[in-house]
Design a protein around this nucleic acid. Structure first.
Length: 275
DNA sequence: CCGACAACCTGTGAGC
DNA sequence: TGCTCACAGGTTGTCG
């Protein structure tokens, strides 16, 4: 489920419910995620006030006075604000308990595949090894055509794999790598060092636009998902190429082709993405 | 340093 | 229906 737009939508959906709130602790039903959830999570969080909720790459960071809780949604994770007595379902592995007057609420972490993570970092979260060596945020001003061109010059790997390499830029997952390359007219197998500066300028703008559009769409269709009793929805998205193998390209009608790169599915239009 | 790929885990849909 | 297989939005770790 989560690419960067969903993670950012989740952040926006939960931040008002937890910022400035005191935590009553945590309930860990299954701590066997990507890495073990700290066994003393309840004690670590009890009494802490959440000062802000921010995002770095696809990590959500709940900052308190004594440290930061780092949350990753993996492939299938979600976070919702529910009443603490709301019935627990099969893959609801962790509740972060939020004191809010008389009613106890929970920030409930669900993750069927358990590729997600929940880690504690006593100092600033930026010093955590997982966050220490990440490339720029795609939506920030330091992700520029000049920067991308300089990075790609060193590499002959296929551009799609480089776009998904978090040392170069974070937060571009499989869907948006496919979509951005279609929009930019770039063949996904093009070696990185073959992209001219002007093409990099254009690709950077397109990556930003593609992610920003998805965040806007997620925000509009998932507005109340944190309060909903049902499972969180996934925003309706008209993909140009993703998951459209053999279907006609929306621009030229040529059947969309599919292959694998780096053990991930790649979709492209052989006519529109000639270079 | 780089690239290739195995691994973590459950659910779902296609095909037989 | 039920079985088996391939694949799924991510990322780390290991190997050559």
């Amino acid at each position: 489920m989560p690419e960067l737009p969903e993670v950012e939508t989740t952040r926006r959906g939960v931040e008002n419910s937890v910022t400035g709130q005191r935590l009553a602790g945590a309930v860990v039903r299954n701590g066997r995620l990507r890495w073990p959830v700290p066994s003393d999570l309840d004690a670590l969080l009890k009494g802490q006030v959440v000062q802000r909720v921010w995002r770095r790459a696809k990590y959500l960071i709940f900052e308190t006075q004594t440290g930061s809780l780092i949350v990753h949604l993996g492939m299938s994770g979600s976070l919702r604000v529910v009443s603490a007595d709301f019935p627990v379902e099969k893959h609801d592995h962790v509740d972060l308990l939020i004191e809010s007057g008389a009613a106890l609420r929970a920030l409930r972490f669900r993750d069927p595949r358990r590729f997600g993570a929940m880690l504690w970092q006593p100092a600033g979260a930026g010093t955590h090894p997982l966050l220490a060596h990440l490339g720029p945020e795609p939506l920030e001003d330091d992700f520029t055509g000049a920067y991308l061109h300089a990075e790609l010059k060193k590499r002959s790997t296929a551009i799609k794999l480089l776009l998904m390499d978090n040392r170069i830029v974070v937060g571009v997952g499989n869907i948006y790598a496919n979509e951005a390359l279609f929009r930019a007219g770039i063949h996904p197998a093009m070696p990185g060092d073959k992209l001219r500066r002007a093409v990099c300028d254009r690709l950077v703008v397109i990556v930003k636009e593609t992610l920003a559009e998805a965040i806007a769409a997620g925000g509009s269709t998932l507005r109340d998902f944190v309060d909903a009793a049902g499972k969180p929805g996934y925003f309706q998205q008209n993909y140009f190429v993703y998951d459209r193998s053999d279907q006609p390209c929306f621009k030229c009608g040529t059947p969309i082709r599919t292959t694998r790169q780096g053990q991930r599915s790649t979709f492209w239009c052989p006519h529109c993405q000639s270079r």
